[in-house]
Design a protein around this nucleic acid. Sequence first.
DNA 1: CAGTGTGAAGTAATTCACAGCG
DNA 2: CGCTGTGAATTACTTCACACTG
Lengths: 223, 223
Amino acid sequence: MSQVPSPGARRIPDATIRRLPAYLRALERSSLSRMTSGELGQLTGFSSEQVRKDLAYFGAFGTRGVGYEVPALAREIRRILGLDREVLAVLVGAGHLGTALLRYSQFSSQDVQVAAAFDVDPRVVGTTIGRVVVEPLEHLEERVQELGARIGIVAVPAGAANAVGERLTRAGVRAILNFAPVTICQACPEVVVHNIDLALELQALAYFVTVTPDKSLAVERDL
Amino acid sequence: MSQVPSPGARRIPDATIRRLPAYLRALERSSLSRMTSGELGQLTGFSSEQVRKDLAYFGAFGTRGVGYEVPALAREIRRILGLDREVLAVLVGAGHLGTALLRYSQFSSQDVQVAAAFDVDPRVVGTTIGRVVVEPLEHLEERVQELGARIGIVAVPAGAANAVGERLTRAGVRAILNFAPVTICQACPEVVVHNIDLALELQALAYFVTVTPDKSLAVERDL
DNA sequence: CAGTGTGAAGTAATTCACAGCG
DNA sequence: CGCTGTGAATTACTTCACACTG
């Protein structure tokens, strides 16, 4: 549903792309020099076949009978995800959630750097949160272009989210992580939007606590 | 993958459950008294057939040729999700992220109430964040049982997350929303774990900004 | 006759099963 | 021999197409 079925290159399942960062993290944390698909699956919660199939979409990185070289595979995954180049993001909305994201060191890693933050509130503009100084919202377009930022993070109230999404898109952002509880950029086919909707997530969990009164085999699921 | 294939009741796709809260929100926000599946789909970003099929798993709530009664359908969905009863959650970890979640009013709605919060840091224990007073971590089991809380929210550092997850599970929680960047409760089949991993989400977006240099039709996707 | 409800068809993702290779 | 890589089988999910009904 996501990529053009361009001839030549096989289309990569979306689900595969979402698992790659988990594999990468497990590899980076490991002190082993080699790992089998079974071990990598164990660490990430996926089956060994799943791991092998995901990786096989991009090439043959393993050694039969042995497994995968940890540093080499990590490098490959970083390349596949585009993390071998610098990837810059900007965050809009330095409220409670935006502030928490900026302070969460894991979030702005060396892989994807949150390089600027914006807010409308003059009381937070100018303050330093994490590694960035909050700038006024008017600077958004100028700074996105200046930085060459390709990812936008929307952490503004619902009413402002769509306008912010469209401004980010027009400024050149190609992907948006949206925390606002509304659909944004419905009319922007050139940008990929992933939504993280915390309230919806909680409500979905309510279903599982009511519907699972017996010992039915419950399951771990991501995102 | 989620429910026991119990005879009689058709198994509900997991994807359906995750869309129901979005439908519910759209219905609750609307001032219309009736809505068609097309309108509801427009508001939530899904197709009309998808909406109809999702709802049809649980019964025939619409009127042919007309659509759905908004308040009645909202009530049905709330019942399906188990939101017609009080659903209580507890949050563990009142750091930056936990604090942001507690202050985010949408997160603790009348539907799912975050009724208690815990932390190890004596400096935050006793402070009021949002509507709750932060309690010492030792109170966790006692308070979960006392409240009858069935959902746990894990917002502690990676190193502490698995232990917290297991304590929540042993205390009686049936579902966990995990924000820690680690796999938790692998050995707890009786609890449903949903993971929200902010860093992985950003890394996955990196793929879409590199792989979409042409005007391939990009797509909005949830969670 | 407009829009629901639903089998059937189609598509996507996962799991199986095993050949192939180091 | 063990583990990878991969077609084939299976399962899950979505879209189509249309009968049905208020």
